[in-house]
Design a protein around this nucleic acid. Structure first.
Lengths: 250, 250
DNA sequence: ATCATTTCGCGTACTTCGTACTCGAAATGG
DNA sequence: CCATTTCGAGTACGAAGTACGCGAAATGAT
């Protein structure tokens, strides 16, 4: 029935080892997903079309549909493959701040390696096993501090919200430049630069103008800017933890 | 030249009042944008195609290209139209917490009225006049507290990051259900429900399991959940403000 | 008033996407 | 060796963005 197709990809495992009649599969979900990731890394998600992925594997577009129900499900698989790259210990270390920082930095690293990851991740609610693993680790970092589960989830979400938005800020204009096909330098100079200059020059938005002209963090490395923002978030959390659990501030 | 087309939509004003030869335009950017917003509100952004918008206006797809260079620019216009709906006083009130709360709640209201707004906004870096107006107001809420401009921007971003992510969490599954064409109730029951039950039942992610089963906030209204998360963020900011400026905690 | 010039409206058509359908090839169990 | 099942992949369809070009309309100059 059509009900079959309305099941989450995570409840539709591919049947690999099978004993029975019928031809054996020549490809696999993982192989297809890896090809899609490879293309998306190099040329953007929009280049990872079914035909292109098939081409990468030496076959046609339709062959992929034996392994992935829809293209959107392939996105879920790509997300989970990328989330699997985050290197996290199996058990939390007992240092909440270190644990959350680790998740944040690993997430950022993956988001920069795969510029499509963060946009996809914030675009669709997905719950693959690797994402759950990361989420569980983050929750674990806040376990045992006297917080109830809702507070723990709230703080983890808060860190994640910052991290995802910060990554988008970091890759946003670069990706936009790539989409339009210009090289980033020229794009910044000819496209966004004149507009920002006009806004600032108009004086209509004085505080925004100051944030452009007086910024001292603008000349920091992206990694340092990320760190500063993350510290702001973690300090905010630390200030609200039960007394004596806050740890050191950065 | 082709350079012409690589200019930000905000630096390409439509020439309305014009004295010279040539036929007079029969439509306008605003009219087109309003039609696009109307369709996107009712049927999702993906329904707001050029043909469909043209149809809404009683014309064809190609007529729109006299007013909007590319479809993506139309998205920028839609975003700015929606941001224009935020009702904010011209001047900040001097109450930083109230000011940021106001921006947060107005943003949430607009994001719920226009479910496409938040995904679009976090998908593409845009700087329309109405967005700048809102940003300026938010910065103004933190002005005069002894923060430098980078800190002000950092805290404003922090609130915005939370707000946008919270809105996405709120509309995420609803939108996903709409996209797949199912009614939300059935979607939750047949699609995501069994999967979450399986995860929780497996015991592989105990803390995630607790966040599903022991949650007390799950039965609160979405507005109250949003409030709680916002208070967490604002408390975090208040704790880091120069002494004596923090104001009351919620 | 007439006409050259400029701009607008929009039909046609091309490319590219996801994917439904179909059928021959291959692999197994009896 | 054959019935049954599954896979590979070609063909094709509908819908998307938009390049192109032409006739209609509106103005200023004569």
């Amino acid at each position: 029935m059509s009900d079959e197709e309305l099941i989450s990809i995570w409840m539709r495992p591919e049947r690999l080892e099978r004993s029975g009649p019928g031809r054996r599969p020549g490809y696999s979900r993982e192989q297809i997903t890896r090809a899609a990731v490879r293309i998306a890394d190099a040329e953007g998600v929009e280049a990872a079309t079914m035909r292109r992925i098939g081409g990468e594997l030496g076959t046609g577009a339709m062959s992929l549909y034996r392994y992935v129900p829809k293209r959107d499900d392939l996105f879920d698989l790509m997300i989970d493959l990328a989330m699997g790259e985050l290197e996290l210990p199996a058990e939390p270390s007992g240092d909440w701040r270190g644990g959350l920082s680790l998740v944040a930095c690993e997430t950022r690293a993956a988001g920069l390696r795969h510029p499509w990851l963060t946009p996809l991740l914030s675009g669709r609610p997905t719950l693959g096993p690797q994402l759950l693993r990361v989420h569980e680790f983050a929750l674990g970092a806040l376990d045992g501090l006297g917080l109830d589960i809702d507070e723990m989830t709230g703080y983890v979400d808060m860190v994640n919200d910052y991290v995802h938005s910060a990554i988008r800020r970091e890759i946003g204009w670069l990706e936009e430049a790539r989409r339009t096909g210009l090289d980033p330098e020229r794009w910044k100079r000819d496209y966004i630069g004149p507009y920002v200059r006009q806004i600032v020059g108009s004086g209509a938005y004085p505080l925004f103008g100051r944030s452009v002209q007086e910024s001292r963090t603008a000349h920091l490395s992206p990694a340092e800017r990320f760190r500063h923002g993350l510290d702001r978030v973690l300090n905010g959390i630390g200030a609200q933890l039960p007394a004596g659990r806050a740890g050191h501030r950065a």
